[in-house]
């Protein structure tokens, strides 16, 4: 059983919602990432989404775009991201790690090489924003062979047919993009999320994570009532960007994640 699947089953037994922080690897510098990942786990993260920087992050808002630019200024490409995962795994072999990014760095490395290196580094899932199921037939068998879960996105305008397809092809969890827009947008409508999730639940048994627009503990709790997992990205990256020092950044993201953890645990 994959680390992701095992984690979700364990959480279900504990009646606990998954909290998934996202940070961009190498933001604001390569030295920050490993301590940040360990600190986030300590603060209550059940799994990690680690952003792979890309020069043209088309689905991301300004906050994650700037994080990518800061990381790329340090030449943080896919090869070094995998190295970071390996370093993280040296001390933590429990917390699932999902790489989130765009297809071109994977194309450049080669699908086969990527799948093998990601497995060797200890990656559990891969969410490729611009790789819809229609185009993923070459990559999927290689990921499966490497025992890496492909994570797919669902959107407010995904049709029933597409939801069923993601259910067939996806593993680990499905990531519901809670609004029409880019990451970090601010018009999350909980009623819309509730309606769409009830439609999605009828078509899949996979756990559902909800992200895009989860800014604070209150929203995390509200989303946690509807979803199996809450993803928080831009709100963390904003704090990293605003902090004057690495220590401050660590403290600020830990504070935010702890408050979300507390809010999620209080509701269950």
């Amino acid at each position: 059983m994959s680390r992701l699947k095992a984690k979700f089953e364990a959480l279900k037994q504990m009646r606990r919602k998954a909290l998934i922080p996202f940070i961009t690897a190498g933001d604001p510098n390569p030295e920050f990432t490993i301590p940040a990942l360990h600190a986030l786990v300590k603060a209550g993260a059940d799994m990690i989404e680690l952003g792979v920087p890309f020069s043209d992050p088309m689905a991301d808002g300004p906050v994650i775009q700037r994080a990518s630019e800061r990381a790329l200024a340090h030449k943080m490409g896919l090869r070094r991201v995998l190295q970071l995962v390996k370093e993280f795994r040296a001390e933590d072999c429990e917390t699932p790690v999902v790489l989130m990014g765009y297809l071109n760095p994977i194309e450049a490395m080669g699908y086969q090489a990527f799948a093998e290196r990601a497995r060797d580094a200890g990656v559990d899932g891969v969410l490729t924003v611009d790789l819809p199921p229609e185009e993923s037939s070459d990559l999927l068998p290689l990921l499966e062979e490497a025992e890496i879960d492909p994570i797919y996105l669902l959107a407010p305008n995904s049709t029933g047919e597409r939801i069923r397809r993601m259910d067939r092809l996806g593993c680990g969890y499905l990531y519901y993009v809670s609004l029409k827009g880019v990451t970090g947008a601010s018009h999350l409508d909980l009623d819309d999320v509730r309606r769409k999730l009830s439609e999605i639940r009828k078509l899949t048994d996979l756990p559902i994570g909800v992200g895009f627009g989860v800014k604070n503990a209150e929203l995390a709790a509200a989303v946690g009532k509807l979803a199996d997992a809450v993803v928080v990205g831009s709100a963390l990256v904003e704090r990293i960007e605003a902090a004057r020092s690495a220590d401050q950044a660590l403290k600020d993201i830990v504070d935010l994640l702890q408050s979300m953890r507390a809010a999620l645990d209080a509701m269950s």
């Binding site: 890309f54 790329l72 490409g77 071109n104 760095p105 450049a108």
Partner: peptide, 21 residues
């Protein structure tokens, strides 16, 4: 060399990590 950008696979100018140059 071939890669994926802006919704399609085509020839691109990129570095060895697949970042667009």
């Amino acid at each position: 060399r071939p890669g994926v950008l802006h919704g399609n696979r085509t020839y691109l100018m990129e570095d060895e990590d697949g970042e667009i140059i």
